[in-house]
């Protein structure tokens, strides 16, 4: 029986699952919308793995993304890693001489600088989500254009409209004004792509030495308009990996494989956890002025984890069978 490894990236907008084989090939991948229900989507994803691949032998599991801790707990992951390390690992696997990674996801945008195969510098957007996937999503919706057509429309324009890109609120009002003036849709969309790239390079990419080869990954890489805007500004080709939308999951899958090789066993609970009922309860602890928001996760009738309290009172009392409110 062949060995497989699973990488899962639970992001703000999408949950991605990949299955890798022993030679690091992607055997199967799935891009699901998280829709604020990480546990349900995770279970749905696992069900699909079973349906399409049968009961395969998964030797190791890794989780990443902003929901990595939660997903790691539920699955019994071997590795729980931040997105930056994972994107670097997968990009290096895609192109070993990579020097710069541009990653734009749902709520984060990152730049990772790599020299001689190691991460030497990185940056993430600081406070504002302007110029990330969810911003584009929203603007596409507002313009009445499917996000899938967004990039193609941008490419049709050769007369971009300048749109303020530093702040999502300003960008939106600027865009509305330009619409009212009668600019056509393609020009506005192309202008928006340029604004996003300008904002990215001035904020996230500020002070970084962006050398080629450059890889562009994350969900937004599907947008040809953004790719073209990057290439115009940086004056060089930007490479998009075939599996750009699941690169985080690929990276953590590779890390899980390495970890399992080292410890020779996996802590993965098996694909049948998609049948188990998970419940999440939250409460505000009123025992002190911190008013911590405590979360409890139940697996069937057992308490799987509690977290969110600053003092550790709830986290540590997990064996105590009394449940929260």
């Amino acid at each position: 029986m062949k060995n497989f490894y699973m990488g899962i990236d639970v992001g703000s907008v999408s949950t991605n699952i990949v299955i890798l084989d022993e030679e690091n090939n992607i055997v199967w991948k799935k891009y699901l919308r998280t829709q604020g229900k990480p546990i349900d989507i995770l279970k749905e994803g696992l069900k699909e793995v079973r349906k399409e691949l049968g009961d395969i032998d998964i030797k190791g599991v890794g989780t990443t993304g902003s929901g990595r801790q939660l997903a790691g707990l539920i699955l019994g992951a071997d590795v729980v890693k931040n997105e930056i390390t994972c994107h670097a690992v997968s990009a290096l696997d895609f192109m070993p001489d990579i020097k710069t990674i541009i990653e734009i996801g749902g709520q984060d945008s990152k730049i990772i600088i790599i020299r001689d195969g190691i991460v030497v510098d990185f940056a993430m957007n600081t406070v504002c989500a302007a110029g990330t996937g969810s911003f584009l999503d929203r603007q596409a919706f507002r313009l009445g254009v499917g996000i899938e057509q967004f990039g193609k429309l941008a490419l049709k324009s050769d007369n971009p409209v300048r749109i303020a890109g530093r702040c999502a609120v300003f960008a939106e009002s600027d865009m509305i004004h330009k619409q009212q003036l009668g600019h056509n849709q393609e020009d506005i969309i192309w202008g928006l792509c340029q604004a996003l790239v300008r904002n990215y390079l001035n904020n996230v990419g500020k002070g970084k030495e962006i050398l080629g080869p450059i890889a562009f990954q994350g969900g937004v890489a599907a947008n040809e308009g953004i790719k073209r805007a990057f290439e115009d500004t940086l004056k060089q080709e930007v490479f998009i990996p075939k599996d750009f939308d699941v690169m985080g999951a690929v990276g953590v899958g590779l890390l899980a494989k390495a970890e399992v090789k080292r410890k020779k066993t996996t802590s993965f609970k098996g694909l049948n956890i998609s049948n188990i009922d998970y419940k999440v309860r939250g409460m505000e602890c009123n025992d002190c002025a911190n008013l911590c928001e405590v979360i409890e996760i139940q697996e069937g009738n057992n308490i799987l984890a509690r977290y969110g309290d600053k003092c550790g009172k709830w986290t540590n009392s997990i064996k105590d069978s009394s449940k929260l409110a």
């Binding site: 890693k81 931040n82 930056i84 390390t85 190691i118 991460v119 030497v120 510098d121 990185f122 993430m124």
Partner: peptide, 13 residues
């Protein structure tokens, strides 16, 4: 995420 990635990077280096 930022702290973890930062520590990872230094250890990697």
């Amino acid at each position: 995420t930022r702290i973890e990635a930062f520590i990872d990077m230094m250890k990697w280096r």
